[in-house]
């Protein structure tokens, strides 16, 4: 079985909001200084799920694939250290500022170049722009089924059983392979890469493919091909300023707070 996991590099969501800065002119987010970017949290769970499938199904191969500018090979190395077997980076100036349709086209082309695959895993959304479309559009582009917001996958021959997260519980669906599954955080904590995993990952070669390498259609990628565009980006203003309650002792401050909550009918 061959699993392809799509992973994205994002600014670390653990940053305090005060360090989160946007540029309203370019409508972009400025990376927080001094904090290295990380693998998107949902994608990390997709890698985790792939590793669990591999443990139960010997002979499974996992390929981690990423796209983006700069040193995005770090997230592929992270996936390799967790247990992926191979990695590929998709990097080209022409890829930049593509929307979900452009990204799906690029991923589809790269996946077609890889050739054979049984299962494609993506995070349910990237944990930066929270768009939540690429996995589904990728499946439509490849003409294969998609199952969204998965928390578990069980392989049974040429089919999979997927547990999907629902508002009041979950459902189990059966899908034929090949298919795309988008992965939710309910998978649980991803494994930490082992020391040996990190050493082996560091030694692995990660090829970088360009638009020409994968035969991407220039008319389908980049900002000009985007189906939607951002016209403004802003930090919503909060109409509250914090009223700090003080008193001689903390217990007295707590009493004042309780009275205030009752007065304003919050409780």
């Amino acid at each position: 079985m061959h699993i392809i996991v799509c992973v994205k590099q994002i600014p670390d969501p653990e940053v305090p909001p005060a360090k989160f800065k946007i540029d309203p002119d370019t409508k972009k987010v400025m990376p927080p200084p001094g904090l290295p970017p990380v693998i998107s949290v949902f994608d990390e769970r997709a890698v985790e799920l792939a590793c669990r499938i591999k443990e139960k199904n010997p002979g499974t191969k996992i390929t981690a694939i990423t796209m983006g500018p700069g040193k995005v090979s770090d997230v592929v190395k992270h996936a390799l250290a967790m247990g992926a077997d191979e990695g590929i980076v998709l990097q080209d100036k022409a890829f930049e500022d593509s929307d979900s349709f452009g990204n799906a086209h690029i991923l589809a082309k790269a996946i077609q170049k890889i050739g054979s695959y049984d299962l494609i895993l993506c995070g349910r959304q990237a944990a930066d722009w929270d768009i939540g479309q690429t996995g589904s559009i990728l499946a439509e582009t490849l003409g294969i089924p998609v199952v969204t917001v998965a928390k578990d996958i069980e392989v049974a021959g040429d089919k999979i059983k997927v547990s999907r997260v629902m508002e009041d519980g979950y459902e189990v669906v059966e899908a034929p392979l090949p298919c795309v599954v988008t992965v939710s955080n309910e998978v649980g904590l991803p494994r930490l890469p082992s020391g040996m995993g990190i050493i082996q990952a560091a030694r692995k070669q990660v090829p970088a493919w360009t638009a020409a390498d994968i035969g991407a259609d220039p008319a389908k990628i980049g900002p000009a091909a985007a189906h939607s565009e951002i016209t403004s980006l802003f930090i919503p203003t909060r109409d509250t300023t914090c009223e700090v309650i003080t008193a001689d002792t903390l217990a007295e401050a707590a009493v004042k707070l309780a009275l205030k909550l009752r007065e304003t009918k919050v409780v």
């Binding site: 700090v244 003080t246 007295e252």
Partner: peptide, 19 residues
């Protein structure tokens, strides 16, 4: 505190039981 309506600066072990 930047998103809070009310705040108390101090050890929660003294604040929460009293609250």
């Amino acid at each position: 505190f930047k998103i809070a309506t009310y705040g108390i600066v101090g050890d929660y072990k003294e604040v929460i039981p009293a609250l």
